[in-house]
């Protein structure tokens, strides 16, 4: 099976293919480091290099001038992001329909917030335990212990399943429903990340719903129209509670958001490298921002501090 890791690697491999053609000494050293980082990298590079060589003889027969052929395949390559596309507009419409199930007794709602770099644990009736990561906000309901709304940040949900009363989390305009479950939800800049450690979770319950098993995760685009499913390491879900963050090719923008919550300082990332995938596990002491500088070397970025946190930037001019 193809995984999001393969696709992230392919994207990196393409970057190297392009860069190495007019490369200088340092580029080859960096390329070698990249190969050494992950045994899959050489295979990913070979894949794209073979493709590049194989199209060679075909290219002088390609018409580079014509406007786009409107064949069924054309025009939507950008939609396929990491793995496979679960749904487009239809799913978004369905998610809106699902909103109707949310109870409307707003005066019973209350908010729980966590400060910078701290975690909070909330126990709910029915055996649910919600652990809130730093700088996160959740709305709960006194009358309905099977409801939560994550308005920002990240939380781990450990839910005792009750088939008659599924636990539902509202995130933006989306609904996530447990089916016997430990799952993690992060909600940042209106894009949602969901990872399932145990049991099963239903995303956008209803007709055409998406069911995720333990070891699967999902990520939506900010507008909710693109949903990408991928594999996650079950053992790493909610690892942030112990200060442990594990990545298998997630973009640096995700790493930055996680670091912000864990360390309690704003960590931003230069758009030029925001999409760069990161592989590895980071272990940090919660709330201790002094670890950032050392960490930046491990992430192969430069940290530029400003009054209000830091920004990860590429090294020097980075690109040849």
């Amino acid at each position: 099976m193809d995984s999001d890791i393969d696709l992230a690697m392919r994207r990196e491999a393409i970057g190297w293919l392009v860069r190495l053609r007019d490369a200088e000494d340092a580029d080859w050293l960096h390329f070698e480091q990249w190969l050494a980082q992950n045994p899959g990298h050489a295979a990913a590079y070979r894949e794209i290099e073979d493709l590049d060589i194989d199209i060679g003889p075909l290219l002088d027969r390609v018409d580079f001038h014509g406007a786009a052929n409107d064949d069924a395949l054309a025009g939507r390559p950008g939609l396929i992001r990491r793995r496979w596309l679960v749904g487009g507009g239809a799913l978004a419409a369905m998610v809106l329909a699902a909103l109707a199930i949310v109870p409307q007794f707003l005066h019973d709602r209350y908010e729980v917030r966590s400060g910078n770099g701290e975690t909070r644990i909330v126990l709910l009736e029915g055996g649910t335990r919600v652990t809130l990561n730093g700088n996160s906000r959740i709305i709960l309901d006194r009358k309905d212990p099977r409801f939560a709304e994550l308005t920002s940040g990240e939380a781990l949900f450990e839910v005792r399943h009750d088939a008659r009363r599924p636990f539902r989390v509202l995130v933006g305009r989306r609904v996530v429903e447990d089916a016997g479950t430990v799952f993690n939800l992060a909600y940042e800049g209106s894009s949602l990340r969901l990872a399932v450690a145990e049991g099963k979770v239903i995303y956008a319950p209803g007709a055409g719903q998406t069911e995720l098993e333990a070891g699967e995760g999902l990520e939506t685009s900010a507008d909710g129209t693109t949903v990408v499913i991928g594999a996650v390491r079950k053992e790493s879900v909610g690892g942030w509670r112990q200060g442990e963050l594990t990545y298998q090719g997630e973009p640096l923008s995700t790493v930055a958001a996680d670091l912000s919550r864990l360390l309690g300082v704003a960590v931003r990332v230069d758009p030029a490298i925001a999409a760069r995938p990161y592989f590895g596990t980071i272990v940090l002491r919660r709330g201790d921002a002094t670890q950032l500088q050392a960490l930046m070397a491990a992430l192969d970025v430069e940290a530029v501090s400003d009054g209000n946190g830091i920004t990860m930037k590429p090294h020097g001019d980075g690109i040849p």
């Binding site: 099976m1 193809d2 393969d6 392919r10 994207r11 393409i14 970057g15 293919l17 392009v18 045994p39 899959g40 295979a43 990913a44 070979r46 894949e47 794209i48 493709l51 590049d52 199209i55 395949l73 390559p77 396929i80």
Partner: peptide
């Protein structure tokens, strides 16, 4: 990168399974 990405994605459309199988083999 965008051009290569589009070609690679389209390349899979011929036979996605073959692409994956090849990837696994080379791994």
């Amino acid at each position: 990168a965008k051009a290569y990405e589009a070609i690679a994605v389209r390349g899979r459309k011929i036979d996605g399974a073959a692409w994956s199988a090849r990837h696994l083999m080379s791994k």
